[in-house]
C-alpha cells in the first residue's frame, strides 16, 4: 500500500528553487566582472594546465567587454542571493531541520560507504534517512560555501569600509581567489548534483517540488494500526 511521507518543508523547496536561477545570474554576471582581469589558472612547473578562461569560452558565452553590465546585475542579484540564503539558514536553525542536515560524528565514515556504493564498488546500501551521510556533508558544505561567497564578496566589494572582513579573508587578493574558487565549486557541485538527482529518480525529485515522497508499506500491518487507532478514538469520545 502506498503512503505519503512528508520530506521537504515548503520553505526549503522555495529557497532551493529561488537559489538556482539567482546563483546562475550571479555566476553569469560574475564572469563579466572576472573577464576584465582574468588572472587565474592552474599551472604546474610553469606549464599552464587550465586558464580561466580560454578565449573560445568567453566568445561562446558573449562575456567580453561587459564589465559595467556585469557589476550592475551582480550588485542587484547579490541581495536576492543573500536574503534567500539567510531565509534558508534561519528556517533550518529555528525549525530544527538542521538536525537532519548537519553531519554527525559518523557521517564522514558513512559518506565513504555512500561513495563506494554509488560507484558500484560496494553492494550494501548505506543508511538513508532524509539525507544520507554524503548528502549531509555536501548540502552542509554548499551552505557554508554560500556564506563564504557572501563574506568574500563583501570583502572585495568594500575592502576599505569592511576592512576587517577583508582582513578575515586573508586580504583583497586571497578574498578574490576564494570568491572565484567557490564559484568553480558551485559548478562542480551542480554537475554531480544533477547526476545524482537523475540517478535517484522521480520520487526523490518530486519531493523537492511537492514536498512528499510516496513509500510502499506492507498493507496488513498498516490496516491493523489504523483500526486500533480508530477504536481508541471512539472509546475516548464515548467516555466524554
Amino acid at each position: 500500500m502506498k503512503e505519503i511521507k512528508e520530506k521537504h518543508a515548503l520553505l526549503m523547496r522555495w529557497t532551493h528553487w529561488v537559489n538556482f536561477p539567482v546563483l546562475t545570474v550571479m555566476i553569469w554576471s560574475g564572469l563579466f566582472i572576472y573577464w576584465a582581469n582574468d588572472a587565474y589558472g592552474i599551472s604546474i612547473f610553469s606549464f599552464t594546465l587550465i586558464k580561466f578562461f580560454p578565449e573560445w569560452f568567453y566568445k561562446y558565452f558573449h562575456i567580453p567587454h561587459r564589465l559595467a553590465e556585469g557589476m550592475a546585475f551582480h550588485f542587484l542579484f547579490m541581495w536576492f542571493f543573500f536574503i534567500n540564503g539567510l531565509l534558508y539558514i534561519a528556517y533550518t536553525l529555528f525549525s530544527g531541520a538542521w538536525r537532519e542536515l548537519v553531519p554527525k560524528r559518523n557521517s564522514f565514515k558513512e559518506a565513504w560507504q555512500v561513495l563506494l556504493h554509488d560507484l558500484h564498488i560496494r553492494k550494501t546500501t548505506p543508511p538513508q534517512k532524509k539525507y544520507n551521510a554524503a548528502q549531509r556533508i555536501a548540502y552542509s558544505a554548499i551552505i557554508l560555501m554560500g556564506a563564504g561567497s557572501v563574506i568574500t564578496g563583501l570583502a572585495i566589494y568594500k575592502p576599505v569600509q569592511l576592512y576587517w572582513l577583508c582582513w578575515l579573508c586573508g586580504g583583497y587578493h586571497f578574498a578574490r581567489i576564494i570568491h572565484f574558487a567557490l564559484t568553480i565549486g558551485y559548478v562542480l557541485f551542480f554537475v554531480i548534483h544533477i547526476l545524482q538527482v537523475a540517478l535517484a529518480g522521480w520520487n526523490n525529485f518530486r519531493s523537492v517540488v511537492s514536498g512528499f515522497e510516496v513509500i510502499e508499506t506492507e498493507p496488513q500491518i498498516r490496516e491493523e494500526k489504523t483500526l486500533t487507532a480508530n477504536n481508541a478514538e471512539n472509546e475516548t469520545n464515548g467516555s466524554k
Binding site: K2, I4, W17, R206, V209, S210, G211, F212, V214
Partner: peptide, 20 residues
C-alpha cells in the same frame, strides 16, 4: 491515497511551473 498524491502533485507542480 492515490487521489491525494494526484492532487498534491497537481497543486505543487502547477505552482512550480507558474512561478517558474
Amino acid at each position: 491515497i492515490e487521489q491525494k498524491i494526484k492532487r498534491r502533485n497537481f497543486i505543487s507542480f502547477g505552482a512550480f511551473f507558474a512561478l517558474g
